[in-house]
């Protein structure tokens, strides 16, 4: 399936399309954007996340402090809880197993989130359905070739079924973003393998965090697996010529030596001249005493 088609599908089925229920009064109100997403992190903890924003002068602004209600079930009638949006307009609801999630006909879960609106903000709702995917990541080293193997399966009607044809991107974590290092498409067994590049820098010890990520998949939502391994090249950064250079705090040795020689040479002569002047003065004093002595005698 092409990337483009996937995106279209995602837009239609997965992302929350804000359903605006217009209020009775004819006064200006905010019609917010509302998005519901399903996440499953590396510890296999799943959660739902909504983002509530609105557009002001073409700038997207968050709506913090709003109460979002989450539901599940075929009829979206089983309440999961309510969460208040944070300062980024995001509300997260962990699916920690307190509520048994009912499966749909195709083994999917259905979720629904609602923001009830208030005097100025319109009511919005969004829903998604997700099939639970179990993702496994295995790192192995064969003849110094580093291999990443992924295995994915889902539970449909109590049966374990391999995930076929889905694409997973492999990343490594970097300071500002994730660096993609490869792509795995699951084969008929729900597995896939790639070689990991041998020349990627890790941290000081060569540790590198590898990430397998399925993003915004129309069927499975967002799933990630991360694992840290000493597969990177150890980096050590020593600032070249840290201690003595033109542009550091401490100057190069030759500068100090040259300056000292020049200054001591010159000021030495100055001192000689000043001492001469002092001697002239003392000589004058001695002469004066002598003269007075002569007069006395």
């Amino acid at each position: 399936m092409s990337e483009y088609l996937r995106k279209i599908l995602y837009l239609i089925s997965f992302t929350a399309v804000g359903v605006t229920i217009s209020s009775a009064q004819d006064r200006p109100s905010i019609s917010p954007y509302f998005q519901l997403q399903y996440f499953k992190n590396t510890k296999d903890q799943a959660y739902l996340q909504t983002t509530l924003t609105y557009s002001l002068n073409r700038i997207e602004l968050p709506l913090p402090g709003m109460v979002i209600s989450f539901y599940t079930g075929e009829k979206r009638d089983l309440p999961l809880g309510t969460v208040m949006t944070d300062e980024d307009g995001i509300a997260k609801l962990p699916l920690d197993g307190k509520v048994r999630l009912p499966f749909g006909a195709d083994g999917q879960w259905t979720f629904n989130s609602v923001f009830d609106g208030n005097d100025t903000i319109d009511q919005v709702a969004a829903d998604i359905s997700v099939v639970n995917m179990d993702l496994e990541i295995t790192l192995s080293k064969v003849d110094s070739i580093k291999k990443i193997e992924l295995k994915a399966s889902s539970q449909i009607n109590g049966k374990k079924v391999p995930v076929i044809g889905e694409v997973v991107i492999i990343y490594v974590t970097r300071m500002f973003s994730l660096l993609p290092v490869g792509e795995i498409t699951f084969d008929d067994n729900g597995t896939g393998t790639i070689d990991f590049p041998s020349d990627l820098p890790g941290d000081e010890n060569g540790n590198i965090t590898i990430l397998a990520k399925i993003e915004e998949n129309p069927t499975y939502g967002n799933i990630e697996k991360r694992v840290t391994e000493r597969w990177g090249l150890p980096t050590s950064y020593t600032v070249p010529e840290t201690h003595r250079a033109l542009w550091t705090k401490t100057p190069p040795m030759w500068m100090i030596i040259t300056l000292s020689i020049l200054l001591s040479g010159v000021w030495g002569h100055y001192i000689f001249a000043i001492i001469s002047l002092i001697l002239i003065r003392t000589d004058a004093k001695r002469k004066k005493v002598n003269d007075e002595y002569k007069i006395k005698v």
């Binding site: 002047l277 002239i280 003065r281 000589d283 004058a284 002469k287």
Partner: peptide, 8 residues
């Protein structure tokens, strides 16, 4: 400085 032109 009390200079008086002594040889010294």
């Amino acid at each position: 400085l009390g200079y008086s032109g002594t040889p010294r």
